[in-house]
Nucleic acid binder design. Structure first.
Lengths: 198, 198
DNA sequence: TTAAGAAATACGACCGGTCGTTTTTAATTA
DNA sequence: TAATTAAAAACGACCGGTCGTATTTCTTAA
């Protein structure tokens, strides 16, 4: 019989809900009770899944970044000779989704970097590794684009990947308080259609 | 005799401490008690100065941005025919100070945008106006630089000011978790010494 | 100038609630 | 029955905010 594996299901549900609530209300602004209620897991059971809120937060961060890496990775391997186009299409997809969400909550990584990046070592390390993985992928895409001749070669792929990530993060913050997608659109335009090509 | 004006002094002390603690621990991560203890103001007195924690947060935001506007403004009016140089020197100053602080706490605006930008209307508006004032000043500086021939003219000063602010914010977040000034240095270099000049 | 009255501020105790976590009990499995 | 896991109950600490009251400051009138 297919074991329901309720434990793994609950764990996943908690992580999913953690992403949503941490993104909308922040880490300290979200109580465990709120997360547990949303997925119908008793409070006493939480510590069967995670050893503390802090460790849970670190796990939420890793859980959050996974889909983004998968999607960007897919875009890159699909469009063989147009890596820059793949990156453009990937961010365009994100913009569409952010507009659908009415600009509620930008990027969990950005929000948590500011809120607990300096106070929680565990979460800081998780943020570091999440961003590093994301950056490495973006960097490899930009390196491809350089070889394909669509991106300037007088800057390293790493430098450009970092710049793109940082500007994107800042633009997401602006988007939230301006309630407009203009900042993120301009971010992509300025970098992907101007600065990175020469 | 010089009137002590204890009220105004206490109010200022609370705002100063609010900046420090909100920056290091976030809004929800900082209790009123902690702020009050640090400046020796009793709990019951807080609400003679501010009507709620939320309004206090909004006031802290305005209090925070003021020195930055003054400093940038001073740099701009001091260097008559080199507005771009003034902007460069202003950011270089910030970088030095951030390095001295060992990268603890980047920018209060960035942190609070992510944490409460979507949940507190009062603070969201305060963040909006603070950033708008800062952006307008930076924009006027870039416009000067354009007239002086040191900055490209095929982009509007507004667009460049927004890009610089957003990238700077993102770089500050990265700085915090990487514990390195490399992101903010690269931000200034990429924009002020490359993208903005042609 | 002074006395009296009104208003604002100072202050600590305390409110109901929620926080993250631990301990204890109940249920399940071996 | 013994061992393992789930969940309920309880824990102290702390949250933002309110209370009554004591003190100061400001306003007014004599």
């Amino acid at each position: 019989m297919p074991k329901p594996n309720k434990k793994e299901f609950n764990r996943e549900s908690l992580l999913n809900q953690g992403v949503v609530l941490f993104m909308n209300q922040g880490y300290h602004g979200t109580g465990l009770q709120e997360i547990l209620d949303a997925v119908n897991v008793p409070k006493g059971s939480f510590y069967n899944y995670f050893s503390s809120k802090e460790e849970f937060g670190a796990a939420v961060i890793q859980h959050y970044i996974e889909p983004f890496i998968s999607r960007l990775s897919l875009h890159l391997q699909q469009s063989g000779s147009d890596a820059l186009g793949a990156i453009r299409r990937y961010f365009d997809e994100l913009i569409v989704e952010l507009e659908e969400n009415k600009f509620k909550g930008g990027c969990l990584l950005g929000s948590l970097m500011g809120e607990i990046g300096s106070t929680s070592d565990v979460c800081q390390q998780s943020l570091q590794s999440a961003i590093a993985r994301y950056r490495d992928l973006l960097q490899s895409g930009l390196a491809q684009a350089q070889q394909q001749g669509s991106v300037r070669t007088d800057k390293t792929p790493e430098e450009m990947a970092d710049l793109l990530i940082n500007t994107w993060q800042g633009a997401l913050l602006r988007m939230q308080i301006e309630k407009s997608s203009a900042p993120i659109k301009q971010c992509c335009h300025d970098l992907l259609n101007d600065f990175f090509i020469r």
